[in-house]
Amino acid sequence: MTPDLLSAAVSPEHWLAVLVTVALVLAAVGMHYEGLARLNAWTPRWRLAGRSRVLLLIFCIIGLHIAEIWLFGLAIHGLTYFPALGTIGGTEPVRLLDAVYLSTTTYTTVGYGDLAPRGPLRLVLGSEALTGFVLLTWSASFTYLEMQRYWRV
């Protein structure tokens, strides 16, 4: 092992970033799972026409994604109070809405690049991109199945 790799492997800041990342991914996936499970149970009870039902479902799913983005954004903002865990390049100081914006561009994998994580915080944001991609595609699959059930032209 090179000295840089060894120091990163034993760095408490890096291990803390790993723990925060695992907790955030578990929370976001759990939130998504429960959200879709509830929508699956509630959707048949809605007294709406098929297409209106799908429209409401879409708004609910977007709300679920917004909650997940804010979950990561709040964590990112909180982590920036500990400089050893990393910083966000492109803005100083990092305000809450800056962190939520960075979370949004990361979660959706748009990644404009005007804000960039540095240090152990990169692990949190890299994992958010993977998590966001998986959750967005999960939502797309769920929506497709619901549209097959309720969408009548």
Results as ranks from 00 to 15, higher is better:
R95D: 15
R149N: 01
I66L: 09
A9P: 01
L102S: 11
P3M: 07
G119K: 04
G89I: 15
T105H: 03
L145E: 15
A8W: 05
G132R: 07
A28Y: 02
M31P: 13
V54R: 07
L85W: 05
A116L: 14
P3R: 14
G73D: 00
T105M: 01
W151I: 07
L39N: 03
A129E: 03
A28W: 00
H32P: 11
V54P: 12
A17D: 08
G119H: 06
L115W: 01
G126Y: 00
T91V: 14
D114E: 11
P44W: 04
E146T: 11
W138N: 08
G89S: 14
L74D: 07
L85S: 04
L56S: 13
V10M: 12
A49L: 10
T137H: 08
P93G: 05
E146R: 14
P12N: 03
Y144T: 13
M1Q: 14
V54I: 12
V22D: 02
I61K: 03
Q148N: 14
D4L: 15
L145A: 15
A99D: 08
T43F: 10
S7D: 11
V153L: 12
G73I: 03
D98S: 07
T143V: 15
F59L: 14
T108S: 06
M1P: 06
I76C: 03
R45P: 00
D98T: 06
S127I: 07
S103M: 06
L6Q: 15
G132Q: 02
L5M: 11
W151H: 09
S11C: 07
D114M: 14
G30A: 08
L102N: 01
R51P: 11
I62A: 10
F82S: 15
A9K: 11
D114W: 14
F72V: 00
T43C: 06
Y101R: 04
G111M: 07
E13P: 09
T21P: 02
V100H: 02
R38M: 11
I88C: 03
T43Y: 03
G35S: 07
L136T: 01
W42D: 15
R38H: 07
V29H: 04
L56P: 11
L85C: 02
S52R: 10
L121P: 06
D114I: 13
L55N: 13
D114V: 10
T131P: 02
F59M: 09
S103L: 08
T21H: 00
R51Q: 07
F142A: 10
R38V: 12
S141H: 15
V94Q: 05
R118F: 14
H14R: 15
E146L: 12
V100Y: 01
Y150I: 00
F72K: 00
I62W: 05
F72C: 00
M1H: 12
D4H: 15
Q148C: 14
P12E: 06
G90E: 13
W70F: 15
E128S: 04
L55V: 14
L130K: 04
G30N: 04
R118N: 15
A8C: 12
H77P: 13
R51G: 08
I69V: 08
W138A: 13
G111D: 05
T108E: 04
A49V: 09
P117V: 03
L36S: 08
R149S: 05
M147V: 09
P83T: 05
T91F: 13
T143C: 13
H65Y: 08
R47V: 10
A28K: 00
L36H: 11
T80G: 02
L85A: 05
L97E: 11
V18P: 09
